[in-house]
């Protein structure tokens, strides 16, 4: 009985300790970042591997999710004679929820796991230790550009996801199912508010981007430097990120749209 309590306590302490450590890592990397000009090429490279390489999967998923929403929305709303509202439904669900959440989940799987594996490999092959011995802080050289790239890429990817999704929805409901395009767009415009809906969605994406890259980078830095350890950390990145995204999404939604 006491053993179990002690084990629980030990777990709790180690979780809090690693949370503290992770916070220090992110603060150190994000806010102590001098010479942004000199480090620009590093950031560009990370934007490429984190952002550009995720673009295809984000666009394709966004298109299909938008098309499915258009189709489902139409079949439900047509029963009430309100098929013009399909634009509103597609746009609101994408902009408020699906774009940030699905983008973040895909991002965790595509870019987050790659980040963990990359940093874990750098640790296993002693590249991080080697940087330190050369007199370069790996937090600044390796971690900071990756965190910034994640932070910048996620909102962009999420916006692209939403925009592509809405045009996918329009394609299905307007071009294929014959909803009148004027009311499709104007009903949408009447119900979507730029500040309340679009900006809040972007804020969600920003938060998710920070959380996912943070988890990914920390898992990479803390992994056991063997191939087994890297594999475990990569899995952990995806699992932890997904859970955090969904939990945070509820919290953020409650703060932004709910009256809780």
């Amino acid at each position: 009985m006491f053993d179990m309590l002690a084990a629980l306590g030990r777990q709790g302490i180690s979780y809090i300790a690693s949370l503290g450590k992770a916070t220090l890592v992110v603060i150190h990397a994000l806010f102590v970042w001098p010479q942004p000009i000199k480090n620009m090429p590093l950031l560009l490279k990370q934007l490429y591997s984190v952002g550009v390489k995720s673009l295809l999967i984000i666009t394709v998923s966004g298109l299909f999710i938008g098309m499915v929403l258009g189709l489902q929305g139409y079949t439900i709303l047509v029963d009430f004679g309100s098929e013009q509202s399909v634009g509103q439904m597609v746009a609101l669900s994408l902009v408020r929820e699906l774009a940030p959440v699905v983008t973040a989940l895909l991002f965790a799987g595509r870019a987050g796991s790659a980040l963990t594996a990359e940093i874990g490999l750098m640790k296993a092959t002693e590249q991080l230790a080697s940087l330190e011995m050369i007199g370069v802080d790996p937090l600044r050289r390796v971690v900071a550009p990756r965190l910034w790239a994640g932070f910048i890429s996620m909102p962009i990817l999420s916006m692209i996801f939403a925009a592509v999704g809405i045009y996918g929805g329009a394609l299905v409901s307007v071009d294929w199912l014959g909803v009148y395009s004027g009311s499709f767009w104007s009903v949408m415009q009447a119900s979507v508010d730029f500040y309340d809906d679009v900006l809040n969605g972007i804020i969600k994406a920003l938060v998710f981007g920070l959380v996912v890259t943070w988890i990914a980078v920390y898992q990479g830095l803390e992994c056991i430097p063997t191939s087994e350890g890297i594999a475990q950390s990569t899995t952990r990145t995806v699992v932890y990120s997904s859970l955090m995204i969904l939990a945070l999404d509820f919290v953020l939604t409650a703060l932004m749209f709910g009256d809780i």
């Binding site: 962009i156 916006m159 925009a163 415009q189 809906d197």
Partner: peptide, 14 residues
Amino acid sequence: GLVAALALAMSVSG
């Protein structure tokens, strides 16, 4: 990203 932002601002939220 910029184009998407513009699309969201102009044609989606009007």
